[in-house]
């Protein structure tokens, strides 16, 4: 299991490093959206709430290209090849980890760019950093199985958003609330939010882990 996990992660990262499909799609999407929001608003919007919402909406929609991680295996007929050597569970967990890495990277880049373009001041820097990290990895964990489903029906993008929105809404609501507080002068503790994200993503992660072998077959 561990062997399969490590080899799959190395393989996925190496392929991603060579083809750059997912990361370029996600980055160009998120950067373009962030900058166009900056252009459109001219830096006028002021409310911390609005900033938090915009920031997380950008990150959420950037995530829809992560289904390419699974789609690539199907399109290139490597899914069965992979299954010949490793269990579906280790494939799932490795994709989940790669997905997390990508989403955290995206959150970091989009977050910094957003702060820069929109001139937002962060009062609680550590809280904000933790929220970006926890929120984006929770999003990644909960949407990995959706990414697999959309990859299997080869209707990515739109379907991914439709399917993942109702499920990730708790995450989005909670992180928007906490991020708003980081942008304003209120003193707050992010522990309850983090605990919630942890509980929710663990639950969905475990259920996805159990269900994944049922869909990742018959290629």
């Amino acid at each position: 299991m561990i062997k399969g996990l490590v080899r799959n992660i190395v393989k996925d990262l190496r392929i991603e490093f060579r083809s750059k499909v997912v990361i370029s799609l996600i980055l160009s999407f998120s950067v373009i959206v962030t900058i166009s929001i900056g252009f459109a608003s001219g830096g006028i919007i002021g409310s911390p709430m609005v900033h938090a919402i915009l920031l997380w909406v950008i990150i959420f929609f950037s995530g829809m290209n992560t289904s390419h991680l699974f789609y690539r295996e199907i399109e290139e007929h490597t899914a069965l090849f992979n299954l010949m050597y490793y269990s579906p569970e280790s494939i799932f967990v490795s994709k989940l980890i790669v997905n997390c890495i990508i989403m955290v990277a995206v959150a970091a880049i989009v977050g910094l760019l957003y702060l820069f373009v929109m001139d937002v001041s962060v009062y609680n820097v550590s809280g904000f950093a933790i929220m970006m990290l926890a929120g984006s990895s929770a999003l990644a964990v909960c949407t990995t199985i959706i990414a697999a489903i959309t990859a299997l029906v080869q209707a990515r993008g739109g379907l991914f958003t439709i399917l993942s929105f109702p499920i990730t809404l708790p995450i989005i609501t909670v992180v928007i609330k906490s991020t708003t507080q980081c942008f304003s002068k209120e003193i707050y503790s992010s522990w309850s939010a983090i605990l919630f994200l942890l509980a929710f993503s663990t639950l969905l992660g475990v259920v996805s882990y159990i269900l994944f072998p049922y869909i990742w077959r018959e290629f």
């Binding site: 909960c142 199985i145 499920i167 639950l203 969905l204 259920v207 269900l211």
Partner: peptide
């Protein structure tokens, strides 16, 4: 699978 995920969430 989708419905079960939604059900759990």
């Amino acid at each position: 699978v989708y419905l079960v995920i939604a059900f759990v969430a």
